[in-house]
Simulated scan of single mutants.
Amino acid sequence: MAHLKQDKDALLNRVRRIGGQVQALERALEGDAECGRTLHLVAAIRGAVHGLMDELIEAHAREHVARPGLTDEERKQGLEEVLEAIRRYAR
């Protein structure tokens, strides 16, 4: 995804925050945290991953489906890639 280079730092920061959230969840489980706190941590991780996926899907669609100048074959391939990612994500 070479077109993401301009957003690379922001994307890496998001991934690092998600990593921090996962570490907090691990600590909560190891420390026998209350159920409510553990549920909150899992929900926060899910939301963060969902937001990251939304951003990546949008970037892919703009670059590989909607960008002017693409051939029909390139658009078709870009669409298939994003649909496959959505199918896998939705499982």
Rank of each mutant, 00 (worst) to 15 (best):
Q23C: 03
L83P: 06
Y89Q: 07
A28C: 03
M1G: 11
T38M: 00
A66P: 00
A28D: 01
L70Y: 05
E34W: 02
P68W: 11
E26C: 02
Q23K: 13
R46P: 03
A10I: 04
K76P: 00
R16N: 11
K76H: 15
R27K: 12
G47L: 12
A66L: 15
E26L: 04
R16Q: 10
Y89V: 12
I45F: 13
D7A: 13
Y89S: 10
R67V: 14
A61I: 04
A33K: 05
Q6W: 14
G47M: 09
A43T: 05
G47E: 14
D32T: 13
D72P: 11
R62Q: 11
E26T: 06
E63P: 04
M53T: 09
A2T: 15
A28S: 02
A2S: 15
A2K: 11
A2R: 07
R62A: 10
R14I: 05
L70M: 04
K76C: 09
R14M: 03
A85L: 14
G51T: 07
H60E: 04
E63Y: 10
L70P: 06
G20R: 05
D7P: 00
L56Y: 05
A48M: 05
A44S: 04
A24N: 03
H40E: 04
G69H: 05
A33D: 02
E55K: 12
C35V: 09
H60G: 11
A59P: 03
R75T: 11
R88L: 15
L56V: 12
Q77F: 13
A85W: 07
E55N: 08
M1E: 08
R62E: 11
L29F: 05
H40A: 08
G47H: 06
E26W: 06
L4S: 04
L70F: 07
R87Q: 08
R67F: 09
L25S: 01
L29W: 00
R75I: 11
I86F: 10
G36Q: 05
A24V: 07
E58S: 15
R37A: 04
A85H: 10
A28I: 10
A44I: 01
E80C: 02
E58I: 14
L70A: 03
D9P: 02
A10N: 08
A28G: 00
G36H: 10
